[in-house]
Amino acid sequence: MLIKKLSFSVLIVSLFLFGCANQAPKNETKANTALQSATELSFREFYKLPIGPNGLEPTAKLLSLKDKRVHLQGFMVKAEEPVAGIFMVTLVPVNIPEKEDGPSDDLPGATVFVHMPLEDSEKILAFRPGAWDLVGTLQLGAMDESNGRISYVRLLLDQAPVQGAVE
């Protein structure tokens, strides 16, 4: 798998980097600590594959991680009309052209809705391409989201992702 080939050494910043880019060494230590306390979860471990005639079936591993800290690696969904406080991450790069197609989309079933911390819930996170490392608390079950979609797996972040200093 593409993402698994990526070395952790290049994942300079996790969600637990507090502060600016010039604090990287200190934050890297915190990030590593956070990663160590989180269970690795692959998007392919969300549901039984291939997906069956009656829809998604969660795996025992996914169910066992309810309300637990997990580490996910995936791609931020490029939304044409992003909303504040949440963004979607999945296992392959995906664009969703809501203006033209609405909820007729190419989202894989294993999509996680990432919720920003309360203090950042009014912010819209800028899209960045590439593979993201995310650590947070896993929440399960159907829920209406503010982007009009229904989520089944959510990741509740403790800290908003740091996107690095603007050049």
Binding site: P93, R128, P129, G130, Q163, V166
Partner: peptide, 18 residues
């Protein structure tokens, strides 16, 4: 490679263009 244009490089900490 995928039906979306993406660098597939690590995305964390990548700054938006200035």
């Amino acid at each position: 490679p995928y039906p979306s244009n993406d660098s597939q490089q690590p995305g964390n900490s990548v700054a938006p263009l200035n």
